[in-house]
Simulated scan of single mutants.
Amino acid sequence: MTTTASASVSVGSFEFESGGRIPELEIAYETYGEYTGNNAVLVCHALTGSQQVRGTPDGQGTGWWNEMVGPGKPIDTRKQFVICANVPGSCYGTTGPHSTNPETGEPYGSDFPAVTVGDWTRAQRGLLDHLGIGELRAVVGGSVGGMNALEWAKRYPNRVEKVIPIATSARLDPQLLALSAVSRRAIVSDPAWQGGDYYPNHPDAGLALARQLGHVTYLSKDSMAEKFGRRLADCPPREFGTGDDSSESSPAFAPDPDSYRDVESYLDYQAQKFVKRFDANSYLSLTHAMENYDLAAGCDSDADALADFDGEALVLSISGDWHFTVEQSNRLETAFRDSGAETTHRVIDSDHGHDAFLTEPESVGPPIRRFLEPETGRFAPVHASLFAH
Rank of each mutant, 00 (worst) to 15 (best):
T31Y: 02
G20P: 06
I22K: 00
G37I: 09
E26R: 08
E15R: 14
Y29P: 04
P23A: 02
F14R: 01
N39W: 13
E15G: 14
E34G: 12
E17I: 14
G37P: 06
T36H: 10
S18A: 13
I22C: 02
E15D: 15
G20V: 09
G33H: 04
A7E: 10
R21N: 13
V9H: 03
S8D: 09
R21T: 14
S18I: 12
E15A: 15
E30A: 12
A40L: 05
E24M: 05
P23N: 01
F16R: 05
G19K: 05
E17G: 15
P23Y: 04
E17T: 13
A28T: 03
P23V: 02
F16W: 11
Y32H: 15
F14D: 00
E34D: 12
I22L: 01
S13A: 12
N38S: 15
I22Q: 00
S10H: 02
Y29N: 04
F16C: 10
V11T: 02
S18C: 14
G37N: 07
E26Y: 10
R21P: 11
E34I: 12
G33P: 04
I22H: 00
A28E: 04
V11H: 00
N39E: 10
S10T: 01
I22F: 03
E30H: 09
Y35I: 10
T36C: 12
Y32A: 15
G20W: 11
I27K: 02
N38P: 14
R21M: 13
Y35N: 07
T36V: 08
G19T: 03
E34M: 12
G33K: 04
A7Y: 12
E34Q: 11
I22M: 01
L25R: 00
V9F: 06
A7G: 12
E34R: 06
G37M: 10
P23I: 00
G20C: 11
A7P: 10
S13I: 03
N38I: 14
Y29T: 03
T36R: 07
E30M: 11
Y32F: 14
E15N: 14
Y29E: 04
I27R: 00
T36Y: 11
E24R: 03
E26Q: 10
S18T: 11
F16L: 11
F14M: 01
S10I: 03
T31M: 03
A40V: 04
E24G: 06
A40Y: 05
